[in-house]
Design a protein around this nucleic acid. Structure first.
Length: 566
RNA sequence: CGGGGCGUGGCGCAGCCUGGCAGCGCGCUCGCUUUGGGAGCGAGAGGUCCCGGGUUCAAAUCCCGGCGCCCCGACCA
């Protein structure tokens, strides 16, 4: 365990000028990481210790499930990616060797592991299996940002499960999901497991592990017993009081009013009493009408992912010309009289009052529009949850969060194109059912910094702190304090505590500031005060509570305090 | 990919508009003092001013081109 005078811990009084995210500023200031280029970071010694603590927790929990650690290369033949259909991904780094053979830098390892499975797994007797590794991932990110949160190169633990069938995959998936909960619990993170979209590459299910914090890039919707990525979340809308509906829709002149805001103001109604019409072109509509009119409340927004699922197809916004041709002038289109499939969001009520909607005529809107009476529709939940919505009567919270883990049921997405199959008990060949399970240790570290930092610096959960104890000696070389600190240092090490010993000849304030910036769970101070009082001061970093311990048996008392720390 | 900003000792910045010895704070080195909250005095070291070209007697500064980095948005398998 290091003496600080011999260690590399380059703390800074000021954060880098361009650093925005708290974790970015603090990890740099505390001397844990340094930048090499955009999205490229070096982990300095103390930072790497924290990173590797996280790695070790993941390793232990993966091993406990029976998973087997291995290692696969980052540099891979392009051919594998061509076969899986992922060679075209923009984020994939592509290169060639001196013989012009095309290669890629892997962003994950489905292709390689599946090609191994194809040749190494032959019989149902070889299944199930779970394999994993910690390896560098390379991604040509459109915009690296926030220090270590979104980088172009990072270590990831990725695991892959192999099963005979869907039921086997479900069981493996459930087992790994439990391991994930244990990993994040042990890392001391606040996190939620949320339902997620499976993404463009398909699959049978996916969960994301989200750690709420200010630097989060994704929004999660939270309510008691409910947690979902906002991309897929559903909730009950805030009700809107609608004006009483006349027997039939009434046209109103609305000159040059083409936005929800303008029309709502004109009618003196809340935006929720309007209907917003969103025409889309469905890509996969063999023989049918490609134009669909999506209708939702004026105060709501279309959720692309939920809409894609509801349509069962990719879609794009209809062009002005396409809208003009089938409906009327963009800006005053609506469902009444539209001879189209109409997909009505569930937040729109049928009855109980009339909405205002576009009339499909220039400068005209209709008031008193009642769904069902005035137009036919199909129902779907296609809007994005907004603040004020509720679930089970409780108002939802919408919080930014960092994705720290993501697990997928891949099914046969990779095993089929890459030929990974096995012979079942009847001797027939079947595709292997796969799952993939990723975790980013760097993101766990950054999320922990974000979640627990205070105005003095980082406050690590003790399980992932670079060191257990930060021992500060205020005495000069040769002083009684220094002699005492030297001996306590040895005792702490003997007690099994990973101890960083600050015996530098610096001012007390500077040493305290450095200790609080680095954020180890306990700071132990030996100074003249210790000699005079016969008591050792221990500060618990989380909350900054200090207490005095008798010199006698101090090391074991500190060890006990450490066990109780967060 | 759209918008904005920035590149000057290790870090944070001024100087640029109006061309004329490259500066400030912190950090670093040496000496003395100090020693429980980023200490004092004194003496020092350290810079291709992002790169290339141009204008000029003279360029950190003006012009042209390039590169890099950050932030917002889009994107994020």
């Amino acid at each position: 365990m290091p003496r600080l005078s011999e260690y590399l811990l380059p703390t800074e009084r000021e954060p880098p000028a361009d650093a925005e995210a708290l974790s970015h500023r603090l990890l740099v200031r505390a001397g844990l990481i340094r930048q090499v280029g955009a999205g490229l970071w070096t982990w300095l010694p103390a930072g790497w210790r924290a990173h590797q603590k996280i790695v070790q927790i993941i390793r232990e929990e993966m091993d406990a499930t029976g998973a087997m650690e291995m290692l696969m290369p980052v540099l891979q033949p392009a051919e594998l990616w061509q076969r899986s259909g992922r060679y075209g991904i923009d984020e994939l780094f592509k290169l060639s060797d001196r013989r012009d053979a095309p290669l890629v830098l892997a962003m994950t390892h489905e292709e390689v592991i599946t090609s191994h499975a194809a040749s190494l797994i032959r019989s149902y007797r070889d299944l199930p299996k779970v394999l994993y590794h910690f390896q560098i991932k390379e991604r040509d990110e459109p915009r690296p940002r926030a220090g270590v949160l979104r980088t172009r190169e990072f270590v990831m633990k990725d695991a892959y499960s192999f099963d005979c069938d869907r039921e086997g995959l479900d069981a493996s998936y459930a087992r790994l999901a439990r391991a994930y909960d244990r990993i994040f619990d042990r890392c001391g993170l606040e996190y939620y497991s949320v339902k997620a979209d499976v993404g463009a590459m398909g699959g049978h299910g996916s969960d994301e592990y989200m750690a709420p914090c200010a630097a989060g890039e994704n929004d999660v919707v939270l309510a008691p017993g409910y947690a979902a990525n906002i991309e897929v979340a559903s909730a009950d809308p805030q009700p809107v009081v609608l004006p009483e509906a006349p027997p039939a829709p009434v046209p109103e002149h609305t000159p040059a009013m083409t936005t929800i805001d303008q029309v709502a103001r004109h009618f003196n109604l809340p935006a929720g009493a309007l209907l917003k019409a969103f025409p889309v072109m469905v890509e996969d509509s063999p023989g049918g009408e490609p134009l669909v009119l999506v209708v939702l409340r004026g105060d709501h927004k279309v959720n692309d992912i939920k809409l894609r699922i509801a349509l069962g197809s990719q879609f794009r916004q209809a062009s002005a010309a396409e809208i003009e041709a089938r409906l009327g002038p963009p800006g005053s289109i609506g469902p009444v009289g539209a001879e189209l499939k109409i997909l009505l969001d569930e937040a729109v009520v049928a009855g109980g009052g009339g909405y205002v909607a576009g009339a499909n005529r220039p400068d005209t809107h209709l008031r008193g529009v009642v769904p069902g009476r005035d137009f036919q529709f199909e129902r779907a939940d296609i809007r994005t949850v907004v603040a004020g919505d509720s679930i089970g009567g409780v108002t939802v919270r919408i919080e930014p969060a960092v994705e720290v883990g993501n697990i997928f049921k891949l099914g046969v997405r990779y095993s089929e194109p890459l030929g990974a199959s096995y012979l079942d008990q009847n001797g027939s060949s079947r595709p292997i059912w796969m799952g993939s399970y990723g975790i980013g240790p760097a993101r766990i570290a950054a999320a922990a910094v974000e979640q627990f930092a205070d105005d003095r610096g980082i406050s690590w959960p003790r399980t992932i702190s670079p060191f257990d104890v930060h021992l500060v000696s205020l005495g000069k070389q040769g002083s009684a304090e220094r002699t005492l600190a030297d001996s306590l240092y040895e005792q702490l090490l003997s007690a099994g505590l990973e101890t960083l010993y600050d015996e530098r000849e610096h001012g007390a304030g500077e040493k305290f500031a450095d200790a609080e910036l680095l954020g180890c769970p306990l700071r132990v101070t030996i100074g003249r005060r210790t000699i005079n009082s016969g008591e050792i001061e221990v500060q618990v970093r989380r909350g900054q509570d200090s207490r005095a311990l008798p010199l006698e048996g101090a090391a074991s008392a500190i060890a006990e305090l450490w066990r109780l720390a967060a």
